[in-house]
Design a protein around this nucleic acid. Structure first.
Lengths: 120, 120
DNA sequence: TATTATGTATAAGAATCTTATGTATATTTG
DNA sequence: CAAATATACATAAGATTCTTATACATAATA
């Protein structure tokens, strides 16, 4: 009966990174639909990151409301798909978000793996 | 009049990483007090990450309540300091958290910087 | 025929953080 | 010397993001 019994062991660390992930994937692939994004992320992370629908769809709607994404509905095999792509504004913002992500990763690496103290 | 005018441009990306940062610093430095942690993080990240008290102190209290940290109060220069250190349980958990962080960083790098498609 | 996969959606609640305060002492600056 | 800044802890209200659960619907598979 339970339709969704896949265990999400996603650590709290991923919190806050979903928007950046979505925008990066759209920048790379032109247009994608929600379900496709979840599968793509699962593939790239070898099953380690499973985006839940409860997180994904509200995020997509919000990015659209902010004018960063455009949507285009298609019907494939009698099933609805909502393709999202970056707007011009979204493309510019993606550059900023990716830059922030690089800073973030660099900072986290500095914290976790501090450069060894110089000895003389 | 405004006592706290430092701008926190911290992106949402850091959300969820505070506990891991705290535990790693304690693992590295033995014992630290709250204010010291904020200054250390600011230093390591060259001012890019400023932990707010509103995030830090509740996090420390929670880690203590979970049995991962021990606290020890000292008075220095007539000012109170609460030194925190990892419990045994906290040390074990730190290993897990750091492992999770490494996975997280690796996955984010895979997403942002995908290995180029092989061409023949 | 029942389950799994595909596909989108929302609501309730949890977790984490920002912002704004509050309290107190020490040090530095105008 | 008075005011501002630095040091040091604390909490409450609200925002944001996510998990969990549920809902609906069609296609493919067991």
């Amino acid at each position: 009966m339970p339709r969704n019994d896949k265990k999400m062991k996603n650590s709290q660390l991923y919190k806050g990174s979903l928007n950046t992930i979505i925008m990066k994937l759209l920048e790379e692939n032109g247009k994608m639909y929600g379900y496709e994004i979840t599968q793509k992320v699962k593939g790239i992370t070898q099953g380690e990151l499973n985006i839940t629908e409860g997180a994904l769809y509200p995020a997509l709607h919000k990015l659209e409301a902010e004018g960063l994404l455009d949507v285009e509905i298609e019907k494939v095999d009698n099933r609805m798909r909502k393709y999202y792509k970056l707007t011009e504004s979204g493309q510019k913002e993606t550059v900023n978000r990716l830059s922030e992500l690089e800073d973030f990763i660099r900072n986290m690496q500095s914290l976790v793996n501090p450069s060894p103290k110089l000895e003389f």
